[in-house]
Design a protein around this nucleic acid. Structure first.
Lengths: 91, 91
DNA sequence: TCCATCGTTCGAATTATTTCGAACCTTTTG
DNA sequence: CAAAAGGTTCGAAATAATTCGAACGATGGA
């Protein structure tokens, strides 16, 4: 999990999900030109590390933070990570 | 910082320093047979990411957690990481 | 002084991550 | 039904991180 969030792009994704689920297309990367396979891979890392959920939603994909699971397993960690340095710093 | 702590060995080192500074030789790795250059490199990652301090102490090296600095920059993060899952889980 | 101790740094080899295009799948729209 | 939209997966190439031995530096003791 720490590894998944140690990448700025992945951390930024997690931050976008803090206010509720988003369809993949609504999740923005810092560089809007990365190919979809790359974006998909970023999601996969977040997914396999247990940070996000990724369920089919029509032809889209609904992404959501796995808050409960994470808070249960690592209390305080997610909050600390997501709030760290107001989102603009290397974490 | 998250990256530095996302490695189990480095996290274990950080945990050993939570109760106070230690000389490098007193810091134990899960595998006691790793060469010193490898151990030194692990420390370097922790050092350059700002997690630990490493000052000369005679011919030894005194390692210490940079608690204040880290708590100031990432409030709650260190505590959450260090206490997560009682130290035995992948974080 | 000379030598052993405790670590660091360097470079090369290994291993792991990231990145991207192409092929593919499913759902929606025309 | 065909084609477009939205994503996933696979494989290969490029990057980055880890690992280790060897060479080095400083300190402390004989």
């Amino acid at each position: 999990m720490l590894f998944a969030l140690s990448d700025p792009e992945r951390l930024a994704i997690a931050r976008q999900l803090v206010d509720g689920p988003l369809d993949m297309a609504e999740c923005h990367l810092s560089n809007p030109d990365v190919p979809k396979s790359t974006k998909s891979h970023l999601m996969k890392v977040l997914r396999t590390s247990g940070v996000v959920r990724n369920e089919a939603n029509g032809r889209a994909r609904r992404l959501s933070l796995r808050r409960e699971d994470l808070d249960a397993r690592f209390p305080g960690l997610l909050d600390a990570v997501l709030s760290a340095e107001d989102g603009n710093a290397k974490v």
